[in-house]
Amino acid sequence: MNWDLIYTITNNYALLMWLILAFAPRRPAIVTGLFYGGVGLLAGTYALIIIPLMTGLIDGGSTAPPDFTTLTGVRQLLSSPGGATVGWIHYLAFDLFVGLWVARNADKYGFARWLQIPILFFVLMLGPFGLILYLLLRFTRYNKVADAVMPE
Rank of each mutant, 00 (worst) to 15 (best):
A29N: 13
A29S: 15
A29G: 07
A29E: 15
A29I: 14
I30Q: 10
V31Y: 02
V31C: 09
V31T: 10
V31S: 07
T32D: 12
T32G: 09
T32Y: 11
T32R: 11
G33W: 02
G33C: 04
L34F: 05
Y36Q: 00
G37Q: 03
G37R: 01
G37W: 02
G37N: 05
V39A: 02
L41R: 01
L42C: 09
L42A: 10
L42T: 05
G44L: 10
G44Y: 02
T45M: 11
T45E: 01
T45Q: 05
T45A: 14
Y46D: 01
Y46K: 09
Y46V: 03
A47H: 02
A47G: 08
A47S: 11
L48D: 04
L48R: 11
I49M: 13
I49W: 06
I49Q: 09
I50S: 15
I50R: 15
I50W: 13
I50V: 15
I51M: 11
I51R: 10
I51Q: 10
P52Y: 03
P52Q: 02
L53F: 07
L53Y: 06
M54P: 00
M54C: 00
T55C: 02
G56M: 08
G56D: 09
G56C: 08
I58D: 04
D59R: 12
G60N: 07
G60V: 07
G61L: 11
G61Y: 07
G61T: 06
T63A: 15
A64N: 14
A64P: 04
A64M: 12
P65C: 06
P65Y: 08
P65N: 11
P66M: 12
P66T: 05
D67F: 09
F68Y: 12
T69C: 00
G73L: 05
G73W: 05
G73Y: 04
V74T: 13
R75G: 01
Q76M: 06
Q76R: 10
L77I: 04
L78Q: 12
S80F: 09
S80W: 01
S80E: 01
P81A: 13
P81Q: 13
P81S: 13
G82R: 06
G83Y: 05
A84C: 01
A84L: 11
T85S: 11
V86C: 09
G87R: 09
G87D: 05
W88H: 12
I89Q: 03
I89H: 03
H90P: 08
L92W: 06
L92N: 01
A93N: 02
A93E: 04
F94V: 11
F94E: 00
F94Q: 00
D95P: 03
D95N: 15
D95V: 01
D95W: 04
F97K: 03
F97Y: 09
F97H: 05
V98F: 14
W101I: 08
W101V: 08
V102D: 00
V102T: 06
A103Q: 03
A103K: 06
A103G: 00
A103L: 05
A103E: 04
R104M: 14
N105Y: 13
N105E: 15
A106D: 05
K108F: 09
K108A: 15
K108E: 14
K108M: 11
G110S: 07
G110V: 01
G110A: 04
F111C: 00
F111S: 02
A112Q: 08
A112K: 12
A112P: 04
R113F: 02
W114Q: 13
W114K: 14
W114E: 14
L115K: 07
L115S: 07
Q116T: 01
